[in-house]
């Protein structure tokens, strides 16, 4: 899923400063799963911002709403009837959600309340780890299910580097060395010989070769 974290409240307050009627808009999908922008977090942020405004004796209306999915038009249109009541939307969606809402309502400023982080896995309660870069050309088979692009600090395709010690990465001793994980997994499957080959340079055009990517699926279209 897509992970995110809330921006510092000071930064949010500065961005919403000029507006008088604000819709705080949550998203019940990925950012709810990572406890950053779901209904609960949206209620908290709304409440905190209203109290902050009251303490400064500012006359503002701050209301909350959470969409099932902020990045899908079918859900965003649910705001059609009420959007005119607000002069800004404070979105707790990921970067895609913020932009989808902005695309739908070109006249309304849409302000991000979150910093979108990465494609991650929920490792444990309250712990999310980055493990996919969305490179457009999955290499996980070759590397035994551990992505060196997302999980090796130096993105080595032919690792490990000389900083791998006791299975830890030199950048941060609390981090696993992705290459130790790759070697461990491949040896479990008797596939270590796969690493005797030199992995060729990555074809980055699949990720960024022709600008922003899009997926077109005729069978899914009307």
């Amino acid at each position: 899923m897509i992970t995110a974290e809330q921006k510092p409240i000071d930064e949010i307050r500065e961005m919403i400063g000029p507006f008088k009627r604000i819709l705080v808009l949550g998203c019940a999908s990925c950012v709810a799963e990572c406890a950053a922008g779901g209904e609960k977090e949206t209620a908290m942020l709304g409440s905190a911002l209203r109290m902050a405004a009251k303490m400064e004796k500012k006359e503002v209306v701050i209301e909350e709403k959470t969409l099932d999915r902020q990045c899908v038009n079918e859900f965003i249109v649910l705001l059609d009837d009420t959007i005119d009541q607000y002069d800004a939307v404070l979105s707790l969606g990921c970067g895609a959600g913020v932009q989808a809402v902005a695309d739908m309502f070109p006249e309304t400023p849409v302000i991000p309340a979150l910093n979108t982080e990465f494609l991650g896995e929920t490792k444990a309660q309250g712990l999310w780890m980055e493990n996919c870069l969305g490179c457009g050309d999955c290499m996980l088979y070759y590397f035994g299910g551990v992505c060196p692009l997302a999980r090796c600090s130096k993105q080595l395709f032919n690792g490990p580097c000389g900083g791998s010690v006791d299975g830890r990465c030199e950048i941060n001793p609390e981090m696993d060395c992705a290459w130790q994980l790759i070697i461990d997994r491949l040896s479990r499957f008797n596939a270590l010989d796969r690493l005797e080959d030199i992995y060729p340079p990555k074809d980055w055009s699949r990720k960024q070769g022709s600008g922003p990517r899009k997926i077109v699926r005729e069978d899914q279209q009307r």
Binding site: F157, N158, I198, P201
Partner: peptide, 10 residues
């Protein structure tokens, strides 16, 4: 930003 387009072996 770290580039790491190629690695040392490549």
């Amino acid at each position: 930003v770290g580039v790491f387009d190629l690695d040392s072996i490549q």
